[in-house]
């Protein structure tokens, strides 16, 4: 039974530099902050960071896995509050959870939470799905 307040199971994705390279190719976003450590540090970042849109794509996968496939999403939004930092030769977590925040007919709104290394990386994250 899905009702307002229903909490979805947490899921942990793991990101590494290979995934960032693959996402750069898939998305066409080849900004060096996503693969070149020296460049990333030169512009004031702690290390290479994941594309915000890769984070959003993975959280989107979490949503569509729950809702019943990639055709279920009607609205999806998020603010990029902190970067997912991806050091070389490491896998970093993206830990995702959600709560049902509204039900309107067959439209279900989810309020999403996403953290990496314990830090909140998405703010105001919300999806509306038909399930």
């Amino acid at each position: 039974m899905i009702e307002v307040g229903t909490v979805l199971d947490e899921h942990i994705f793991y990101l590494d530099r290979a995934m960032l390279r693959a996402y750069a190719d898939a998305s066409g976003d080849h900004n060096p902050i996503h693969h070149d450590e020296e460049f990333a540090i030169s512009v004031g970042l702690p290390n290479v960071i994941a594309h915000g849109m890769l984070t959003m794509a993975l959280v989107g996968k979490y949503v569509t896995d729950w809702a019943g496939g990639p055709a279920t999403v009607k609205e999806y939004s998020a603010r990029f509050v902190k970067p997912v930092i991806v050091p070389a030769d490491q896998k970093v977590d993206l830990t995702v959870s959600a709560i049902v925040s509204e039900i309107d007919g067959d439209h279900i709104s989810l309020t999403l939470s996403a953290t990496s290394a314990g830090v909140k990386v998405l703010g105001m994250a919300r999806a509306v799905v038909i399930k």
């Binding site: 693959a22 898939a26 998305s27 890769l54 794509a57 989107g60 996968k61 569509t64 496939g69 990639p70």
Partner: peptide, 23 residues
Amino acid sequence: FCSVISETNTTVAPPTFSIRISL
């Protein structure tokens, strides 16, 4: 795009796919 996020249902594009075009 699907392979990056381990999406096996490729009959439609994932919800954020359009950013590739918009950006």
